[in-house]
Design a protein around this nucleic acid. Structure first.
Lengths: 138, 138
DNA sequence: CTAGAGTCTCCTCACAGCTGGAGAGTCAAC
DNA sequence: GTTGACTCTCCAGCTGTGAGGAGACTCTAG
């Protein structure tokens, strides 16, 4: 059942160039537990399985969707426990939408305030020694 | 012409309680150059003028509008040079609106992507060993 | 056998805006 | 004069995601 001819593992530089990430990032991910190595070479070099590429693709995808590495780690933990993480990911992505909605709402409010303020702005008002900017501090 | 009875300056704790900020924050602002003290007491205590309160109000206001301390410092520098900073502030606030617009745009795009993804989501798809989540990695 | 490329660990830095603490000195009230 | 509150400076840490580098080791090709 042993697969003959398949290398015992990729070294980190190979995984880096194949995944498009830096060696630093991969080591960082491994430190966090996001990207387990299958072992070490005799000289102590990390060795990664082919599957690491899919794992990194997964991480990359969730990162572009705005999840934190910690959240991604949670999803991967489910996967590593042998279960399908789809349900958990769905929940995380739903939360992410809610976060985004909150952020958009805050930004819109701030934008409104800024626009209203600028609508009545006087670039060159009469000097009033007691206030730094009369447009702001009435 | 000397104003009699006005204290030579507030100590930092007084300014803190009157402004509602912490002593730590005030020291931090002074270190940054945002909030100059008028001097030191014989014992080395910072002494602040009444005007510091208006200055802090100004800082607080611009902070809630989303400007960074560095940007605020720029506005204050204009003020301290004896000019009215209104024009500069107007420019900064205009930039801030543009930043916000960019952020909202990014967030909306991301939200769209998330929603489309979730629209076709299958919480419990058939297991496929070669992929971590079939909804993400097709 | 040797040179050079790759990798290891460990440490520091970056962003922004503070917060917390240690250890020492100062001030005001009683 | 003493006590307790206040203040000083300096150092460290926090949030997250890595980047940069030092010094040592390993591996591979010629």
């Amino acid at each position: 059942m042993a697969t003959i001819g398949i290398a015992a593992g990729m070294k980190i530089g190979v995984l880096a160039s194949r995944s498009g990430l830096t060696v630093k990032t991969l080591r960082y991910y491994e430190d966090l537990g996001l990207l387990p190595a299958i072992g070490r070479s005799e000289g102590g070099y990390r060795l990664f399985a082919e599957e690491s590429l899919r794992r990194l693709e997964f991480i990359r995808r969730l990162k572009t969707l705005g999840l934190s590495l910690e959240e991604i780690q949670g999803c991967l933990a489910v996967h590593d426990a042998g279960e399908l993480p789809c349900g958990d990911i769905e929940i995380q992505l739903g939360r992410q939408i809610q976060r985004i909605d909150g952020q958009i709402k805050e930004l819109r409010q701030l934008r409104m305030e800024l626009q209203e303020l600028l609508a009545g702005w006087q670039s060159n008002p009469a000097k009033d020694g007691s206030v730094i900017c009369p447009n702001l501090q009435v």
